[in-house]
Simulated assay, not measured.
Amino acid sequence: MSEIRSYPRRVATEAGEIEVRLMSQADEVAVLDFARKLPMHDLLFLPRDISEPKVLAAWIKEIERGAITSLLAVKAGRVVGCGTLVRDPLSWSPHVGEIRNVVATEVRGQGVGRALTQEIFALALGVGLEKLLVQMTVDQTGAIAIFEGLGFKAEALLRDHVRDKAGKKHDIVVLGHNVAQVRAQMEAYGLPGAVQP
């Protein structure tokens, strides 16, 4: 198993320096404020509506239980992004993790999403996951580009898979990254440290 990352840590982005830190119950109000300012379409990245207090409370419980690890991107004391690694060691797929990211509109395209994604990716490697998945609506081209830049590839298209609050259905694309395969290829080329947290 790779080294476990420590937080908080500072990351330079085009939006300025952000602090990346672990989310806890103390962040509930700040995360709810962040979630309620997101465009409704962005919430379709997530399986549940995190702008609802009961959903956020359940999320905090999952963090405390250890099933979810969430990182917050904080700028000037305000949450501007959230990245989450979800895994279920009791399922048929304990080697697979899912990444979920959302970023405030005012810092998009400035490296905050990429920084969060890289941190979550490194956490996934640190806990020994072999495969990572991410899902989003097909029109989220910026987010798709970030994940493709990290080596994720399209694995599935789920038609009419989510319905927004207005009742409109949206297609979801599922991207996957076989971390174990990439790591094995790098080791075969004599680059064992190329895929590290």
Rank of each mutant, 00 (worst) to 15 (best):
Y189E: 13
P192T: 00
T84E: 04
A194H: 06
V55Y: 06
L72H: 06
T137Y: 12
L32V: 10
A156V: 05
S70T: 10
G77R: 08
L150V: 14
Q25K: 09
K61P: 00
G66T: 00
E130H: 15
G16T: 05
T84P: 01
T13R: 07
L43A: 02
I146N: 02
K153C: 01
E3W: 15
V79G: 12
D33F: 10
T141S: 07
T69Y: 14
L158G: 03
G142A: 05
G16R: 15
D160T: 01
E19R: 14
L22S: 06
V127F: 00
L150K: 07
L44Q: 03
V138L: 12
R163G: 06
A26F: 13
E14H: 08
Q181A: 12
H161E: 05
V102Q: 00
E52D: 02
V31D: 11
K165Q: 06
R36H: 14
M1P: 10
L38Q: 11
L56E: 09
V173D: 04
V174P: 07
A104E: 07
R36D: 03
V182S: 05
M23C: 15
L56D: 04
Q196E: 13
F147T: 02
L157E: 10
S91L: 03
T13D: 01
G113C: 07
H161F: 01
G142P: 11
D160P: 11
D160Y: 02
L129S: 02
A76P: 05
V179H: 14
R10A: 15
R65W: 00
T84Q: 09
I99L: 13
V74L: 15
Q185P: 01
G126H: 04
E106C: 01
L175M: 10
